[in-house]
Amino acid sequence: MYWCPRCRGVLLSPASIDAPAERRNYRWVARRPDQRVRHAVPPAPQDKPAATPRYHATPRWGLQDPPPQQQPAPRRPLDRFVGWLGTLLVWTAAMFGVAAVAELLRYGVLLRNRTRLIHPAVLFFSDALVFVAGVLALVLALLTAVAAVGWLIETRRVAYAHAGRLDPRRARWLIAGCVVPVVNLLLPGVFLTELVADRPDPRALRAVRVWWAAWVFGGLLTVAALYWRTADSLQAKADGVMFTAFADLVAAGVTVLTLWVIRTVEGRDLRGRDRIARRWLNAVDPMVPVIEPVHPSGRDHRRAEEQGARESGSDNGAIEHPATGADAVDHAHEEVMAK
């Protein structure tokens, strides 16, 4: 073929096919595919062998063997709130107390309004105080609940790890048991009871039971206070103000009990101080003197008998013989030792 069937280009030089080799103006040459891009690579220079290192003194360096570094604990989403748990509990209890005072002031305004008109500024101040205190108390309660759930997850993990086990309940189930309404009245007490059930000190378990009862009572009281707000009569609404104040006081008490339970589980008192263990022992044995009393030796006993005999002899007219030098020295030495 003289022409390319695709591009119709010349395939051979114009010459006869059967021409001899000396009459052809082309020849076949075999080259590598990358002949045009390859360049001659100069041989790498051979490094001269380095001299053996020599030292004028004993080298003081050695292999570095740093101590193993502890792996940082993984950060969990709720860890940022756990450190503020104590502060949040205190502020939440204080805000619920302020909310209760605001409800009592509103009730006083209602009593005053039965016979006299209320100034609009006083009414505005009362409404604003009730609204702001209630909203702040609810916001702080929500943040405190998040921090408390994080503390519960971390405390259970550490307790089970100290016992050589894994927490049988996953974090998602702990969160769901503490957040879902109605269920969160029962499961938090179960989670805390599992945490302190194996402890030899019964104070933590007793504190959990007291808190559990107060927690259920506070939850039921909150539901009753919300239901009371649906009343239509004026007297029922006024009673609802007092009932709300009572519910706020109970919420403040439950918050303080929560702080007490957390500090008790951690081995501290309500103020956050480490609790010192005290042990009481029954003193049933007789008292033993610390210093042994001085008992007279045989010579002193014999000398006391001779002294008694001399005194009795002197009474009978006998002559008393003084003690010899050796006996006097021994007697003085024994007195010094006795002292």
Rank of each mutant, 00 (worst) to 15 (best):
Q307G: 04
L88G: 05
H162F: 08
A171Q: 12
E292M: 10
A326Y: 02
K339S: 15
A236H: 05
P322W: 08
D47R: 08
D327C: 02
L104D: 06
C7K: 04
L220C: 09
R38G: 14
E194Q: 10
L138G: 11
A57C: 01
E22C: 06
R54W: 03
L88T: 00
V223I: 11
L234M: 07
L185R: 04
A57S: 15
L78N: 03
L142Y: 02
D239Q: 09
V254N: 08
I17V: 14
H39E: 07
L166A: 14
R24T: 02
V183L: 13
S314R: 10
F131P: 00
G298I: 07
R27Y: 10
V158E: 10
F246K: 00
R54M: 13
T258S: 11
D285I: 03
L138Q: 09
G62E: 04
H295D: 07
F191E: 01
P168H: 04
F191M: 09
P72V: 03
Q70V: 04
P188Y: 03
V210Q: 06
A102R: 00
I262W: 15
W61N: 07
V101R: 01
A94K: 01
T144E: 01
P68D: 12
T255V: 11
V290Q: 11
G253M: 11
A44C: 03
Y160W: 09
M337W: 13
R80K: 02
A145H: 09
G218T: 15
A171V: 06
K339H: 11
V29E: 08
R169K: 13
A309N: 08
N184A: 03
A30S: 15
V135Y: 06
P74Y: 01
R114E: 14
A197I: 08
A231N: 05
M337F: 10
V265K: 01
V183Q: 02
A326Q: 08
A207E: 14
H331W: 06
L123R: 05
V158D: 15
M337R: 10
A328E: 14
G298M: 08
A225Q: 10
A318P: 02
A338P: 07
E266T: 08
A141F: 08
S13A: 13
P49S: 15
F243S: 01
V158H: 14
A252M: 13
N113K: 12
G313E: 11
A100E: 10
T230L: 11
C178D: 07
Y55K: 02
L205N: 05
V179E: 11
V254F: 00
W260T: 03
W3K: 14
L78P: 03
T144Y: 00
I291G: 02
H321C: 03
E266L: 09
F81T: 04
P5S: 12
P33H: 10
